[in-house]
Design a protein around this nucleic acid. Structure first.
Lengths: 218, 218
DNA sequence: CTCGGTTTGTTCCCACGTTCACAAACTCCT
DNA sequence: AGGAGTTTGTGAACGTGGGAACAAACCGAG
């Protein structure tokens, strides 16, 4: 995707692998909670719901962190994956659009516990300003630039209606945000160098409906 | 994935294509709202954020619904895609776990407007029972079997904490649900023939964080 | 009817991802 | 020390998906 021109220092990890690393990390955390110190690729793979060969190949992109004949040290591997993903540091995040979904996101404990913390909640509707959600003040959308500059925010979450999403994305990009998580049910366009990931609830249901319909046809 | 043994009547559409059909459908709806009657593959592709060659190939799996030299009839194509996905009919859905996220899902208008309607909200916590969310009564989780049987529910949504997700999934499968949309941050195991799709907010953020970290290293 | 312009449907090729299978490397037991 | 058993890391085969390019098909003008 991005052309890595000079100094091929960092090995580039396939996108499909990157998407699975967080799953492995969560599985390792669960194992660690159960005070399991070591696991085989088979153990971890079944906890993560994947094939063990795929797991080993995925991990091999990070380095050789296992021991043949033994397996992986849970804590060590956990740290290596966290470091590779970048969640050993803490990422400030802004959420725009404090409707039903924005509320749920602001309250979602999985963010804070996994290296992210919500530094601001923004909404265009001034009737919401001053309200506190999950202990964070809801502020005007126009405060975006100031907050991003002050806090060094790189990641923005869009939880607005579809009609507002592109405008919000444009403003985010303008003030320096380079990663966007979009919950609005619309396609947003961004310049090169900005990453967008989309989460769309009704699309997921429609995919299930397709398969469901196929099953019914037998 | 599923072995289609006999009567190869229905062409099987690649999974990647299935995942994009809802996007095309939404783009077509937007065009229809603007009273556009016809569009080229180029028009639709840019509205959907994909390459036009890919769009044409995707549509070709459904049949030949375009006219060379002209393009696609918006309404006709819209109907064909909707029929293929299965959203010309209405799918009953149950949501289990009425916390912050469950609330947001119950209130999400995109479901009803796209061929899905919430027939029941279930929660294990009896303090929530009797409450109405988005006009639907919150009922005990133990009512699951009765509701699924009565209403012919095939699709279940899990919005519980991670610890409860597997149990909920097991109960759903037992009473005949064959498609599950899982919002709980954990991997759930289901038997063959049951489809699971996972939506995981913190995983999406972690993927963004990985790329963000890579950008910062330049 | 024919010709030029347009747009679809499809073929071909390449890149990416998945899985198998096995050599390399480690532990433990005798 | 040596051999049996175990598990990782990886090379190779295979399948799926993406994109360029082009033939087929349609429209409209003359």
């Amino acid at each position: 995707m991005t052309a890595r021109s000079t100094s091929e220092t960092a090995r580039d990890i396939p996108e499909a692998t990157v998407a699975r690393l967080p799953v492995y990390l969560r599985a390792l955390n669960t194992l660690a909670d159960d005070e399991i110190r070591t696991c085989s690729s088979e153990d971890l793979a079944s906890a993560a719901g994947v094939n063990s060969a795929k797991l080993r190949k995925d991990l091999s992109y990070l380095g050789s962190y296992g021991t043949r004949g033994v397996g992986y040290d849970v804590d060590y591997l956990r740290y290596q994956i966290a470091r590779e993903i970048g969640v050993t540091q803490d990422w400030p995040v802004v959420i725009v659009g404090i409707g039903n979904l924005g509320h749920a996101l602001a309250n979602y404990s999985g963010f804070r516990s996994r290296g992210f913390h919500v530094v601001a909640l923004l909404d265009a509707d001034e009737r919401r300003h001053g309200e506190h959600v999950a202990g964070v003040l809801v502020r005007p959308f126009d405060d975006l630039e100031a907050i991003v500059a002050e806090q060094g925010v790189a990641i923005g979450v869009i939880a607005t209606p579809a009609a507002a999403a592109q405008d919000v994305a444009d403003r985010m990009v303008t003030c320096g945000i380079t990663s966007v998580l979009n919950f609005a049910p619309t396609v947003i366009a961004v310049p090169d160098g900005v990453d967008v990931r989309k989460v769309d609830l009704s699309i997921e249901l429609q995919i299930l409906a397709y398969h469901e319909q196929r099953k019914a046809q037998l």
